[in-house]
Every structure is written in C-alpha cells, then in structure tokens.
Amino acid sequence: MASEVRQAPVENLGSGGERRRDFLYIATAAFAGAGVVPVAWSLVNQMNPSADVLALASIDLDLTPVQPGQAIKTSWRGKPVFARHLTPEEIASAKKVDVASLRDPQKLEDRTKAGNEQWLITLGVCTHLGCVPLGAAEGEVRGDFGGYFCPCHGSHYDTAARIRKGPAPKNLEVPPYQFKSPTSVTIG
C-alpha cells in the first residue's frame, strides 16, 4: 500500500524563496485572523444591553408627594426601589445604634446624601435570597427594628435599612443616585 507520496515542491525554490513563501503564508493567515477579531467582537457585543435597555438604566424620581414617615416603591432596572422619608425619630434611633455591633457595619450618614439625611433610598431586594421586604407601603409590617421585614425567612432591617436579625448577610443596597433638586433624584 506504500505509495509514492507526492513531493512537496519546496526543493524547487532556493532557501530565500522558501522563506519568502512561508512569510507570505504567515502574513495571509495573520491578516485574515486579525479580521476575525472584530467579527467575533460584534457577535459578542450584540448580547450586551441594547440601547433601549440602557436608556432605562437611569430614572428620575419625584419625591414631593412623600411625607415624613412615608415611603414609595418604584422600579429601577427591573428591581424594586424603596424611597423613604425618615422622621426625626427614625433618624435618631438609627444614629443611636452601635455600628460595630452590626453584621454589616454602616452609619446612617454613609447610606444617605449629605444635607438629605432624611431620604433613605435603597433597593427593595432582601440581601438573603432576593425577596421583596415588607414595610414600604402603608400598613405593612416593619419588623422588630421599625424598618423593613422580609417575610420569606424573617430578616429584620432597621430604620436605616440595615440588617439586624435574620439570615440576610448585608444591609439593603443603596443604588447610585444624585439629587437634581431638593425634591427630585436621578437613580442610576
């Protein structure tokens, strides 16, 4: 079955010719390969958020109707957001807490904007397994610490939405936001 393997014509060219030919092959392959990169990138990038999704990446929230002691729920990037107008008593009770004893040590000042301490804006997503805690709407249970209470596995959050009791590991997340005016914020 041994057959005459066709000789590759390398010997026909001088050593300079052979090197030239290899360079040409490498150049061609490299150039073509370089072209694959932007194509591959396009195929990957199309899965990134599209322009309409990015447009909703930030929302404006009007805080005018929220009275002290009240909170409103809204939606941002598909997740619930609680915006609470803290009363002076709630602010005081949050400040009284020994921060070092907290599971997730944070001061109220770290979770609110300077000069707007009465506004507590957090995600309404329990940091345990993601349920929406109660306490934002009128009449809902607020848990043992007067903040929010998650009915799924019994996490209690205080007036600064910090975890005090229950399985949640972290305080309710504070999203990035800016005050556009004393009564309006842009979240995200």
């Binding site: 396009s42 195929l43 990038n45 199309q46 990134n48 599209s50 322009a51 309409d52 999704v53």
Partner: peptide, 10 residues
C-alpha cells in the same frame, strides 16, 4: 435594526 448593538449589520 435600531437598538441592538450591531443589530443592523447582523
């Protein structure tokens, strides 16, 4: 065509 990244091309 309008919003997906590179969607028009694909």
């Amino acid at each position: 065509m309008r919003d997906v990244n590179g969607g028009w091309m694909i």
